[in-house]
Design a protein around this nucleic acid. Structure first.
Lengths: 218, 218
DNA sequence: TCTTGGCCTTGATGCAAATCAAAATCCGAA
DNA sequence: TTCGGATTTTGATTTGCATCAAGGCCAAGA
């Protein structure tokens, strides 16, 4: 059960002669929703720690995960003032709340403001990579690429191996990669049988052979 | 055969006390290339008329069309100073060349500068729509959605019908939608047999029943 | 007009992943 | 620790799209 948060009262603005917007750091627990598609965008969120999930849903219920957000990412860039995805917390996160109004008002200064354009352009490039993935890769290549990406973003070195925690459910992985949970599961099993990865419980994967995984990613 | 253009000499900058970058309008013919993946980004291009194609190619040769650019679009947003797609002209275009340097230097002013952030955010939203298309839709839904989109961007009203010209080859449509040319062709034929569209030559489609096409788009 | 070559369409077949269906496992609550 | 529901895995079957293959169309040039 997801609960939507209201940060309206969280920011405590002053209005000096030269407006300088302030940021607030908030911790948000697993399972909470930051915003929904169509909401007025009050804040952008810079992730200090934790994992977020951005998704969109077609009228008939088909779901696409747009991105998983890790530490360093900024989520919630609005279009014409509105959010265009849903955003939920998968792993309790520390977030820097950046007032969305800094985007509209050229006179308002904010430490994060100059980063935003660069971040937007990087996000565009990242989404193009995701296109290649969705349109051109096989199920095995998709899953291998996904594991490599998550490992780069939040993997823990463990001697020769890398431990990757997957805070998202198989459904989320499937909806991110454009395939079914059964196919996700089967491909994980095949990588496990090939000794490329080991699976510990359902939410932890250890990369045993990074080179083989890279090959599998195409 | 594509030819790359060099606009280095096109812009004629002065360096006044308060730098104000100038734009130049250029006409570029069908078949020319504006830039390639990896090129240093000297300009962004605002499309006044015509059609552009942005693409990326995997090492093994598989191609993904990232977007088709129509009048009003801005293409060539760089990442860390470099272009991350190839860009070719499909239909002779009038382009406003916007110097990329205005992105880096906060002191430089330019009429288009304030638009760029808004445009970047809209592009992100547009790419998310494309995700839904690639990952969730069937071949028939993809092609119907594609025709509707092109019709919105560059369709001509013809009484009750809408005439849509397709300046791109079947290969481009296929590489944009993540399918093969054979499947594109088959789906076009089915829409034609269902009297939803009429096909005139290979590059012109007339939408006969907009509602049915919308249904087919899912 | 005939030829050539590049697209595009249509047809036949194969395969990767979806769907349908159980069984196994995980994990939080009592 | 056991229980029970949710999630994940595995198996059997179907299917939509890719692949392989052939033929048609159209424009440019001989």
């Amino acid at each position: 059960m997801y609960v939507t948060l209201d940060f309206e009262s969280a920011a405590d603005f002053h209005t000096p002669a030269v407006p300088v917007a302030k940021s607030v750091i908030k911790q948000v627990a697993n399972g909470q929703s930051l915003f929904f598609e169509g909401d007025t965008a009050n804040y952008l969120y810079k992730i200090k720690s934790g994992v977020l999930r951005q998704s969109r849903v077609l009228p008939d219920g088909r779901t696409q995960i747009i991105s998983f957000g890790f530490a360093g990412d900024i989520v919630g860039l609005p279009v014409k003032g509105y959010h265009h995805t849903n955003c939920d917390v998968l792993e309790t996160a520390e977030l820097e709340l950046i007032p969305a109004k800094i985007l509209n008002d050229p006179a308002t200064s904010h430490p994060a403001k100059s980063d935003l354009m660069a971040y937007a352009m990087e996000e565009i490039a990242g989404m193009q990579d995701h296109f290649m993935m969705l349109a051109l890769k096989t199920a095995k290549e998709k899953l291998a690429s996904f594991l490599l990406t998550v490992s780069q973003r939040s993997g823990r070195e463990l001697g020769n191996y890398t431990e990757v925690s997957l805070p998202m459910a198989r459904t989320d992985i499937a909806d991110f990669l454009g395939m079914t949970i059964e196919t996700v599961s089967r491909q994980l099993s095949e990588l496990r049988k090939a000794k490329i990865i080991a699976v510990d419980g359902t939410r932890t994967v250890v990369i045993l052979d990074h080179d083989m995984l890279q090959d599998a990613a195409g």
